[in-house]
């Protein structure tokens, strides 16, 4: 996972997650409050610059991570810009591109780019374990946090199992045709489903043998200068909100 690799190897890794959360929130507020598409695009550019230049995320990786969301944005924006007008009962619809529809689509594109840049800033600079720690401090229900912790700890085990099984199946021409691919994938998924029971049972036995029937807690990083970081990122975020208002 590209985002996970970036989150552990960037210049802002040791900054407290609260500060990065505040900055992301300011980015989202700036994107939503931007009055014009140009202002929202300016916010997106500022946030992307902080991520790429400030945190040292390679531009190629940044664009590869953003690509699927941009594909969704392109399709949906086109749908918004094109207007269907009913002609008559027999003639169906005529396709038109209205000025107002294009303006509305441009506004949505600008806002979405800003929001995406804010999300990518948080995701590509903060490991998920830090975000779970932040959610714990924000009083998220323990049951939900337990699911998150277990999900995060197990998903790499499953990913490895999928990789190894797919390699073995491919070596036996398991994905040679669509029919074979569907069958191979069905067997792979069934095998993973059984592993859900087996692995959860093993984890339960391991936890019970250590009297582990309470919330699952792990040691977190000590973030020095938390107050200073929060102040700096709040100031930076406020500047971006100010920029969005000035450009509007």
């Amino acid at each position: 996972m590209l985002i996970e690799q970036c989150a552990y190897a960037n210049r802002l890794r040791l900054v407290t997650p609260a500060a990065k959360g505040i900055f992301c929130l300011c980015g989202v507020i700036a994107s939503f409050s931007a009055g014009t598409p140009a202002a929202a695009c300016g916010v997106a550019a500022a946030l992307a610059s902080v991520t790429v230049l400030g945190a040292g995320i390679p531009m190629g990786r940044y664009l590869r991570v953003a690509a699927p969301a941009l594909l969704f944005l392109g399709t949906s924006a086109l749908t918004l810009a094109v207007s269907l007008t009913p002609e008559s009962l027999n003639n169906g619809f005529s396709i038109r591109i209205e000025r107002t529809s294009v303006q509305a689509a441009a506004q949505v594109v600008g806002r979405s780019l800003g929001g995406l840049a804010a999300l990518l800033f948080l995701a590509m600079t903060t490991p998920l374990t830090d975000i779970i720690g932040l959610l714990r401090r924000l009083r998220t229900p323990e049951t939900l946090l337990d699911i998150m912790v277990l999900c995060y700890r197990t998903l790499f085990v499953f990913s490895e199992a999928v990789r190894e099984t797919t390699t073995a199946q491919s070596a036996r021409l398991g994905y040679a045709t669509t029919r074979h691919a569907l069958r191979s994938m069905g067997i792979l998924t069934a095998n993973l489903t059984v592993q859900v029971w087996q692995r959860s049972q093993a984890l339960h036995v391991a936890a019970m043998s250590r009297n582990g029937d309470g919330p699952l807690r792990f040691l977190e990083h000590d973030h020095h200068h938390s107050a200073r970081d929060c102040f700096v990122f709040l100031a930076g975020g406020s500047l971006i909100i100010f920029l969005s208002q000035v450009l509007s």
Binding site: C151, L155, V157
Partner: peptide
Amino acid sequence: RMLLGVAAAFTFVL
């Protein structure tokens, strides 16, 4: 308790 967490990972990988 463990089953539901592991099930979430399974859904994510799926």
